[in-house]
């Protein structure tokens, strides 16, 4: 069996004159949580969208479970996408549907299940993100953090092999943030799927990460376990870590 779920080789992407990705090389290990950190506007979301074929690279290769996806047609690409789940940075809930319909939507479209079964799974997911009471609400009636959690439930509901999280804990208060991180960690260790997580929340991320990748200037400048990253002598990484350190407070780094 292949060790790598996603393997990115020399990926380049520019928007007009702006170089966003400039030679990304990254291996995402199977059944592990890989956290990508980097500056805001550094191209993390763009990188994530490449992994699922939402954006086409200018050059480079993206291998997902042994398939090169950048040159696939829509039909074959959709076969690959069915193994993915994704949480968008802004949740991207369908605002014509209520919470329950949003979460049940992927199930309805891809699995032939009885209504009962769907209800069971959806309600379980909603309970996990603490929003079961809000299942009749429309997205426009939810706060940003609540949307994020509904999006998380929707990403998890199909039990996909690979899940991409674009900043799952931004816009959440620290307490909910922790529960969500725990939820991600728990589900991952329970069902053993490949997770790719983007975050600014360095402290939180070190709680759950198996591997950390540091994205800067369109390249992965560092890749390793959280401990390796923390001991890194790399200037940019150091700067990044320093910035999150609060004097006299070491956060959850020992968690």
């Amino acid at each position: 069996m292949e060790e790598r779920a996603i393997h990115i080789v020399d990926l380049h992407k520019s928007f007009r004159d702006q170089k966003v990705l400039d030679g990304i090389n990254l291996e995402v290990e199977k059944e592990k949580i890989t956290v990508i950190i980097g500056k805001s506007g550094g191209g993390k979301s763009v990188l994530l969208k490449h992994m699922i074929g939402l954006l086409k690279p200018d050059s480079g290769e993206i291998w997902v479970n042994g398939t090169e996806i950048t040159k696939l047609n829509d039909k074959k690409l959709n076969e690959v996408r069915k193994t993915f789940g994704m949480l968008f940075q802004e949740a991207a809930l369908f605002d014509s549907m209520n919470v329950y319909e949003n979460v049940s939507f992927p199930l309805r479209e891809h699995r032939s299940m009885s209504e009962k079964e769907i209800e069971r799974i959806v309600e379980e997911r909603l309970k996990q993100v603490g929003l079961l009471a809000f299942k009749e609400k429309m997205p426009s009636e939810l706060s940003g953090g609540m949307k994020k959690r509904v999006g998380l439930a929707r990403a998890l509901v199909c039990d996909p092999d690979i899940i991409l999280f674009d900043e799952p804990t931004s816009a959440l208060d620290p307490v909910i943030s922790l529960t969500i991180l725990d939820l991600i960690k728990e589900t991952q260790s329970y069902i053993k799927k490949t997770y790719v997580v983007i975050s600014h929340d360095i402290l939180g991320m070190f709680r759950i990460a198996d591997k950390v990748a540091m994205l800067s200037d369109g390249k992965i400048i560092e890749y390793g376990t959280p401990q390796e990253i923390r001991r890194s002598k790399h200037e940019i990484t150091q700067e990044f870590l320093q910035a999150t350190q609060i004097p006299g407070f070491t956060g959850g780094s020992h968690g």
Binding site: K49, L54, K82, M86, E90, F94, P106, E109
Partner: peptide, 14 residues
């Protein structure tokens, strides 16, 4: 602009 269309796409739905 709120990426709902992208959300459909990543669900492998046209």
């Amino acid at each position: 602009v709120t990426e709902q269309i992208d959300a459909l796409t990543v669900m492998a739905l046209n």
